[in-house]
Design a protein around this nucleic acid. Structure first.
Lengths: 218, 218
DNA sequence: TAGATTGTTAATCGATTAACAATC
DNA sequence: TAGATTGTTAATCGATTAACAATC
């Protein structure tokens, strides 16, 4: 379900998924006062190969490593933060103020990643007009208009699967260019709109298979 | 950050991530009364190649397709549900009753995937003893004991990154064999414990890069 | 029958890993 | 210096795609 554009950054999608974990570790090292870190040390921590770590570092960072000592921790942190686009500020609207949607609105952690939820929508008349985490819930039929007026670049979809495509259309109509989709459904969107799926169903399936494998067979 | 065991099912991890979307679509078709569906039709809907769809279907389903008509929708649904382990019931404890943790507790959708959160823990004395969604919040130092006594197979981690490894250790100590980790940090766990990371930071980074790419260059 | 669709076997593509010279 | 570590170039591995005979 991942579409397009992975090629353009010199890093595979898989590699990009490793970066936030590298960054967290490097920050931890920095906090402990560690100045440099070697690829083999990082690899050991993550149970990856040292070559993979070196390749990943080389792809996002201009900070060359030095034989014997390794890579400068602070330099790597800076380059990774920049590559990951932390610091970039992205405004988003959220659609679907159910339990998951409310949680994302309340969750403070996203500001670290430069995400700010500036408005929320719902279809339920009982929710419209109420406030969650200091933000009014607006009626869903205002999505297109508000996104267009405020030039909102991003939408977060936390509605049930059956409504997700309609909401997606409304967001696209409003000029949104990125969609973070929590509904377990494929969304059709124009080429220039990136749909990023948060696939919790697959995570749970993998866990379930693992748990039942040990008891089931062999 | 994905470890071990992908080989054992004849499906790549990427393929498994496609399954929940197939399943949702097939259920939708079934509801509309559609009896059979062809691989090219499914491929068109998801913007995938028809060969990939056929390979995926063949890997999870014994329901053979018929030339001209395609695959039986109901048969595919049954086989996919079984493969994904829906129907299997998994009990889990959740650690970290912050906004994200609370949302996961309240979110009803997980029961569809066979997940039941039977207890929640937190370190914050202000939260301990309170009730969320009908469940008492227990003190974190009881994790190991309760997991062991109740033979809980799975833990969900929604604590801050700095505490995640400690919580992970407590869960493993208690005999948990699967961990769903929402903290943006790599967890070390024994071979037999599957750590499934929910990598929201990477999703946001990909969205952020996409949004800034269009404005930035070219 | 004709043609759409299947399933299988081979080819391609991309990511990871291995080999190794360079260097602090 | 010796040896750990880097960065690069080549080899391997796995997933996706292409080719094509079989079939309803």
């Amino acid at each position: 379900m991942v579409r397009e554009n992975q090629a353009s950054w010199g890093l595979s999608i898989q590699a990009i998924h490793r970066l936030p974990y590298y960054l967290q570790y490097l920050r931890q090292l920095a906090q402990q006062g560690t100045e440099t870190i070697s690829a083999p040390a990082v690899a050991a921590h993550f149970q990856l190969s040292e070559i993979q770590v070196r390749k990943d570092f080389a792809a996002v960072s201009t900070n060359a490593g030095k034989p014997r000592s390794g890579f400068p921790v602070h330099g790597l942190i800076r380059d990774m933060e920049q590559f990951l686009g932390y610091g970039n500020m992205n405004e988003a609207v959220l659609v679907g103020a159910g339990s998951l949607g409310q949680a994302l609105m309340c969750y403070g952690g996203f500001t670290d990643y430069g995400l700010e939820i500036i408005a929320a929508f719902d279809c339920d008349p009982a929710k419209i007009g109420t406030e969650i985490h200091g933000k009014h819930i607006l009626p869903a039929d205002k999505i297109t208009d508000l996104c267009r007026r405020m030039k909102v670049p991003m939408g977060i979809i936390t509605v049930p699967a059956s409504q997700a495509q309609l909401i997606c259309n409304a967001l696209v109509e409003g000029g949104v260019r990125g969609i973070w989709n929590f509904a377990p459904v494929h969304l059709s969107a124009p080429e220039h709109v990136l749909v990023q799926n948060e696939n919790m169903a697959a995570s749970l399936a993998l866990l379930s298979k693992h748990l039942f494998r040990d008891t089931g067979e062999e």
